[in-house]
Computed example of a mutant assay.
Amino acid sequence: MEITKKKAWGPIIGIAIGVGVMTGISNVNRTSPYKELSKFSKEINAKGAVTIDPDTRMDSTSVAEDPLMVVYHYTVVSVDKDSVTIDEKEAKEVLIKQTQENLDNSPDMETFRKHDVSMKYDYKDKKGRHLFDFTIKPAKNIQ
């Protein structure tokens, strides 16, 4: 079984950007960014796994303190890496470009830029095996 790039990765791009925007929380300025991001992550995780589209599920989020980072854990439910040929390099390149552009330019992500919050995206196949991951960091640190 072969899956086309458009079918397999188009929805993933959309969700990666959408979840990035969703995390641009404004009350990070009131308390420590780590505490606020941890609170946000717990709230998201309490809701359980979220089906994003027919191919993608966001399983959970986590937060690292040093360096300050939000990690998004996804499963591509339509991909079994043993039986589907995917171009992981191209998928990563497209996702990195789109999410980096969103992080650097979206008004919703200003707080992330201000606090230099990195974002890591971790993708697994439907059997829980690692497909790929990538991390982006704000190019512009607003002070």
Results as ranks from 00 to 15, higher is better:
113 R>K: 14
33 P>A: 15
127 K>W: 03
22 M>R: 09
116 D>I: 02
69 M>K: 13
119 M>P: 00
135 T>I: 07
65 E>Q: 12
37 L>T: 05
93 E>L: 05
76 V>K: 02
55 D>M: 10
18 G>L: 04
136 I>A: 03
1 M>W: 12
62 S>A: 09
86 I>M: 11
23 T>C: 13
74 Y>V: 04
117 V>N: 03
112 F>P: 01
54 P>I: 11
11 P>N: 10
118 S>P: 00
55 D>V: 08
77 V>L: 07
95 L>Y: 02
40 F>T: 13
7 K>G: 00
33 P>C: 10
73 H>V: 10
94 V>F: 01
95 L>D: 03
79 V>K: 03
135 T>W: 05
20 G>K: 01
97 K>L: 10
50 V>Q: 09
139 A>F: 00
104 D>K: 07
119 M>Y: 00
110 E>D: 09
63 V>L: 09
27 N>Q: 09
10 G>I: 02
44 I>E: 04
6 K>Q: 14
91 A>P: 02
116 D>S: 13
127 K>C: 06
143 Q>A: 08
105 N>F: 01
18 G>C: 06
37 L>R: 08
50 V>D: 00
67 P>E: 04
11 P>V: 12
70 V>C: 00
91 A>M: 06
27 N>W: 13
118 S>R: 11
75 T>W: 10
81 K>D: 06
115 H>P: 00
7 K>E: 08
96 I>H: 09
37 L>G: 02
126 K>Q: 07
54 P>L: 12
114 K>W: 01
135 T>E: 08
112 F>K: 06
77 V>E: 06
81 K>M: 12
32 S>D: 13
120 K>L: 04
113 R>I: 05
109 M>G: 04
104 D>C: 01
115 H>Q: 06
45 N>S: 00
59 D>A: 15
56 T>K: 01
103 L>V: 01
26 S>M: 03
71 V>G: 00
86 I>F: 04
50 V>Y: 09
113 R>W: 09
7 K>N: 08
25 I>A: 10
81 K>F: 04
17 I>R: 05
122 D>A: 07
106 S>H: 08
130 H>Y: 14
123 Y>H: 11
50 V>I: 12
142 I>F: 05
63 V>R: 10
70 V>W: 01
14 G>C: 05
25 I>W: 03
69 M>F: 00
22 M>G: 11
136 I>R: 00
46 A>D: 15
19 V>N: 13
92 K>H: 03
31 T>F: 07
108 D>G: 01
114 K>M: 09
125 D>Y: 03
96 I>K: 14
38 S>D: 13
11 P>H: 07
26 S>H: 07
134 F>T: 04
59 D>R: 15
67 P>V: 10
99 T>Y: 00
98 Q>F: 12
13 I>M: 08
91 A>Y: 04
130 H>N: 13
134 F>S: 04
78 S>C: 11
125 D>A: 05
12 I>F: 03
5 K>L: 11
66 D>V: 07
82 D>H: 10
21 V>P: 00
17 I>W: 02
79 V>A: 11
120 K>V: 00
25 I>Q: 12
4 T>H: 03
141 N>I: 15
121 Y>E: 06
58 M>Q: 09
59 D>Y: 11
127 K>E: 14
5 K>C: 06
